[in-house]
């Protein structure tokens, strides 16, 4: 009876957590079988780079969804920050300053959303739906619906540069993922996020500043949407007013595929990464085997549905 308590009995890695990974593996195997070119280093890097555009905001979305919220405004924040940075660059502002300004703007926009949600008690879905339209509208008004082009060579590095064999966006994604994972797994803020999403009343009574936590996760989501905005604008050498249209849905899909609970309190960053990779692999793989892009939506939706149905059967 007096066995000494130990904390390695129940490992952090469970079957449940491995499910998305198995899905990714299966999917990749099928695609490799259909077209062996899928499994080349060049293509894998390609998949990673394409995935980073979805995965970076998906990491922000993971924070938001872990608190039981949702952020529909990420695509619009991406477009608006991209446009502002483009204007700054065109006006001759230093690249680092422009990028820092864009990222700061993202944090600000996200924090504003968070404040509306916490202080005014507007449901996240409605608040971010409104901001999705407002920020997109602002971008359209600002740009007159025209792309802003010619952003300069040094800015191009963010989206097109390489560090060794690794594309810079992939490196960025790696750093952000590790940072996100660290916050969630190792810090007070991380514990507070899980507590808030798992049981808001209990978190409040346990002394967690629930409002602070919620406002912060929207700021993080805004930050990462802006970072992604830089990547996209840099890669295209232009800020498109329609950039990131529908991105929020792919980000949410990645989070769900990664096993994070939409009701909050349960989930993790590695899952989201795998979820984003599954979507990336579908997009890339279907291209490789020569299937029309019309089918991609169909397959993507099917995979999400199957994943969710499999998850419900326990």
């Amino acid at each position: 009876m007096t066995t000494s308590p130990h904390y390695k009995t129940y490992p952090a890695i469970t079957v449940e957590k491995l499910k998305p990974l198995v899905g990714l593996f299966l999917l990749s195997s099928i695609l490799t079988f259909l077209n062996p070119r899928f499994l080349t280093l060049a293509n894998i890097m390609n998949v990673f780079r394409q995935t980073s555009v979805n995965a970076i905001p998906a990491i922000g979305m993971t924070f938001v969804i872990l608190t039981g919220g949702i952020d529909l405004s990420v695509g619009s924040v991406l477009a608006l920050t991209g446009a502002i940075v483009a204007y700054m660059l065109r006006a001759g502002v230093n690249v680092l300053v422009s990028v820092a300004g864009g990222v700061a703007l993202g944090v600000l926009l996200g924090a504003l959303t968070g404040l509306i949600i916490t202080k005014q008690k507007v449901p996240p879905f409605i608040a971010t739906l409104a901001f999705m339209a407002i920020y997109r509208g602002a971008t359209m008004v600002l740009t007159g619906g025209q792309p802003i082009t010619g952003l300069g060579d040094s800015f191009a590095f963010i989206g097109c540069g390489y560090v060794g064999p690794v594309p810079f966006p992939v490196l960025l994604l790696a750093v952000i993922s590790i940072g996100g994972w660290f916050i969630l797994a190792k810090t007070r803020f991380g514990e507070h996020i899980y507590a808030t999403g798992g049981n808001e009343d209990a978190a409040y009574l346990s002394g967690v500043s629930v409002h602070g936590v919620k406002a912060s996760v929207y700021a993080i989501s805004g930050l990462l949407a802006a970072v992604c905005g830089m990547v996209v604008a840099s890669r295209l050498d232009s800020a498109q007013p329609v950039a990131g249209l529908g991105l929020e849905l792919d980000a949410i899909a990645a989070v769900i595929l990664g096993g994070t609970s939409l009701s909050g309190g349960k989930g993790h960053i590695p899952g989201t990464l795998i979820g984003a990779l599954i979507i990336g692999v579908i997009n890339n793989g279907l291209n490789l085997i020569g299937l029309s892009s019309f089918y991609q939506q169909l397959v993507k939706g099917g995979v999400i549905l199957v994943a969710v149905l499999l998850d419900r059967r326990k």
Binding site: Y194, N199, L205
Partner: peptide
């Protein structure tokens, strides 16, 4: 359950 625990934690 509703005000104390984080059941999934």
């Amino acid at each position: 359950k509703n005000q104390g625990l984080f059941l999934e934690r």
